[in-house]
Computed example of a mutant assay.
Amino acid sequence: MSTAVETFEPAKPGSITRMEGRVVVTPLEMLDRATAQNAPVEILERLMALHERYEANRARQAFDAALASAKAEIPVILKNRTVDFTSQKGRTNYRHEDLAEIARTIDPILAKHGLSYRFRTKTEGGTATVTCIVSHRDGHSEENTLSAGHDNSGNKNSIQAVGSAITYLQRYTLKASLGLSASDDDDGKTTEPEVKVISHEQAEEIRDLIGKTSSNIDVFLKALKVESVADIPAKEYFRVIGMFTEKMKRVPQP
């Protein structure tokens, strides 16, 4: 019994699809016929499972098509915020796009293609975890999760430290989920931000993931344009962790 669909064209439930001169009966149509013929329960259960897989596959294809169309329309997002402060570790100076600017840019385009997103957050100990869930109106959704310690930079109190970390992770999980890019505004400023690298603990975490995923470290470092793991810019940390997290999902479990 084949349910292969050569080209995706959303069909109404229970409809009959025509492909290359052939009539392809959907699993729901087959289930209706089996029910009308008083088929055994075992046959009905198998057809119901087939129908569920068929619908899940259709929903995934619709999600992929909608996301591709949306990404083709989403422009480069403007970095509209500046962070500039000095601590015991030195001066921190960089520009970034806040969550409101990202939402203002992408929300109308995502809605046009039946896409939406939401966040699930969790704090445990000194760690905040944020999961971005991107969903399509046909039912398929995909998730991207990142974790980080509370943001104790500046003069933040404990609540602000948690909120800052969550907002930061919301931006990065959303950008990672949609493959977004950002660009500085053209305000004529020529000051280059100080390049900060990852911490020793973060470098050890990345080395561990390289080993667990059997990744080629030379290819990895060349892609990031750095000479060693310790030279990875701090701003790339979450993107790298997200990349290895996805790769870990494909590693066969013992």
Rank of each mutant, 00 (worst) to 15 (best):
A62F: 08
Y54P: 04
L50G: 12
D84Q: 07
G114D: 03
R58E: 13
A66K: 09
L99D: 03
A62V: 00
A56S: 15
K89L: 11
I74Y: 09
A66N: 10
F85N: 09
I102P: 10
A56W: 06
R118A: 08
G90V: 01
Q61T: 05
I109K: 02
A62Y: 06
N80D: 10
L78W: 10
L78N: 11
R104D: 07
V76S: 14
L50I: 04
Q88Y: 10
R53C: 09
R58T: 03
S116M: 12
Q88E: 14
T82H: 06
I106E: 04
E101R: 13
R95C: 11
A68V: 11
D64L: 11
S116I: 05
N80V: 05
K112W: 02
L115R: 03
R58A: 15
P108F: 02
A100H: 09
S87V: 04
L115H: 04
A59F: 09
K71R: 15
P75N: 04
I74D: 06
S69I: 03
E52W: 02
H51W: 11
L110Y: 03
N57R: 11
Y54S: 10
R91S: 06
H96S: 05
A62D: 15
R118E: 12
D64G: 05
N93Y: 15
L115P: 04
I74R: 08
A72Q: 10
V83M: 10
F63S: 03
H113Q: 05
Y117V: 01
A72D: 06
L99W: 06
G90A: 07
R58M: 12
A59M: 12
I74H: 00
L50D: 14
P75A: 11
A70V: 03
Q61M: 15
R95S: 14
K79F: 05
R58K: 13
S116T: 11
T86D: 09
R118N: 08
K89A: 15
L50P: 01
F85D: 06
G114E: 01
G114H: 06
K89F: 13
F119K: 09
A68E: 11
A68M: 10
K71N: 14
E101A: 15
R118V: 11
Y117G: 04
A100Q: 12
L67P: 13
K112H: 02
H113P: 01
D107C: 06
I109T: 07
I77K: 04
I77T: 01
T105F: 08
H51C: 07
S116L: 07
T86E: 14
N93I: 08
A70E: 02
K79S: 07
Y94S: 08
R60P: 10
K71I: 08
Y117T: 03
N93E: 12
L110R: 02
Q88L: 12
I106G: 00
T86F: 01
A103W: 00
Y54R: 06
I106P: 11
D107P: 03
